[in-house]
């Protein structure tokens, strides 16, 4: 079996196994898996409204997945997408409420603010990795909590002690009347176009620029890149900054499109962590991220329908997602089994 085929088979097998485990859990706990998955299906594709909302949910997943994937390609594990997303969310919402400008300036400004905030949040672990060889996983985890507490405090300050900001001015909003009319007034917004554009941007950077070539080289082998005359430290920082900017944009989607405000949070949104799943499932390629984000965004939104229609707690979908990550991470064993199966077939011939 070719390498390419197994690369695509591993995620597929993982998704199937994940759904199977979910079915078994439903069965054991006394629910009918068929009813459950039908409710999930209807929650994703039920009518135009749900399709619109599903697409809306996919939007931040695309960007969070890109963020994780981009860092992975440079050999870095950005587990801090969650924190970068939160600061991006706040930055975009703040720009959205603080000033009123013509749309043509206001909207890009708010989006850029989110990207800049996320980039800043990614810069810190990048710098520490480059200068002090500090492992980025731990720093980004810590940065997540710092982001959570700091934005909560800032929201309190901005809203005079309240726990959410005002609604952003329409001049900063991504909401789209066109999409709303198309999808029976779902919250689908123009962000999906931005997210898809960013998929192209990531592909462009990685495949068509010197920077992308260097980033990938550093990801493969730091020493070789160093001897080839590349500035490894600069590339590490840049990779984290760009990754953080993608994550910040994911926050902007929530701030300017879905919610149009930011409220203080008791815990994480989870989008950042699911971004890891999206990237892994998509094998860290831009196209793969689209598939990963579509799958997880759909599952996540469709799950909301499960308690109503089938009486099954929506956490079942989180379990499925966790199991899928688990299997994708254990790709080695699936590869081994696929290889054995292939060899057996050969022998049988």
């Amino acid at each position: 079996m070719s390498n390419r085929a197994t690369n695509i088979l591993v995620p597929l097998v993982s998704v199937i196994l994940g759904l199977l485990v979910g079915a078994v859990i439903m069965l054991v706990s006394g629910y009918n898996p068929l009813t459950g998955y039908t409710a999930l299906w209807n929650g994703i594709f039920g009518d135009l409204y749900t399709i619109g909302e599903t697409l809306r949910q996919i939007t931040p997943y695309l960007l969070a997945g890109l963020a994780v994937a981009f860092a992975f390609r440079s050999g870095l594990f950005n587990i801090g997408v969650e924190g970068q997303l939160i600061v991006g969310w706040f930055a975009a919402a703040y720009v959205g409420v603080a000033v009123e400008l013509p749309k043509i300036i206001h909207l890009p400004l708010a989006i850029l603010a989110a990207a800049a905030a996320g980039a800043l949040w990614g810069f810190v672990p990048g710098l520490l990795k480059a200068k002090f060889r500090v492992h980025e996983v731990i720093v980004t985890i810590m940065m997540n909590y710092i982001a959570l507490h700091v934005t909560n405090a800032l929201i309190k300050t901005v809203s005079d002690g309240g726990d959410r900001t005002e609604r952003i001015f329409t001049s900063a909003s991504l909401r789209s009347e066109f999409f709303q009319n198309l999808t029976e007034f779902s919250r689908l917004h123009y962000g999906i176009l931005i997210a898809l554009m960013m998929v192209g941007v990531m592909w462009l950077i990685l495949e068509k620029t010197t920077l992308g070539y260097e980033l990938k080289a550093v990801g493969f082998n730091q020493n070789a890149s160093e001897y080839a005359g590349m500035n490894v430290n600069k590339n590490i920082i840049l990779a984290m900054v760009i990754s953080g900017a993608f994550a910040g944009l994911a926050g902007a989607m929530e701030a300017l499109g879905t919610f149009e405000y930011v409220s203080s949070k008791g815990g994480f949104t989870g989008i950042g962590f699911d971004g890891i799943a999206v990237a892994l499932l998509g094998m860290n390629t831009p196209l793969g991220v689209i598939f990963g984000a579509t799958l997880f965004g759909s599952l996540k939104y469709g799950a909301l329908n499960m308690p109503n229609e089938a009486g099954i707690p929506l956490e079942i979908v989180e379990i499925v997602i966790a199991v899928i990550i688990f299997f994708v991470a254990s790709g080695y064993i699936i590869r081994l089994l696929l290889l054995r199966a292939a060899n057996k077939k050969k022998e049988a011939k």
């Binding site: 707690p313 079942i316 379990i319 966790a322 254990s330």
Partner: peptide, 17 residues
Amino acid sequence: VVSGVAINLLAIALSLY
């Protein structure tokens, strides 16, 4: 790290379920 992330997601999902 990925396996750890999966454990975190699984634990909270399973117990809330």
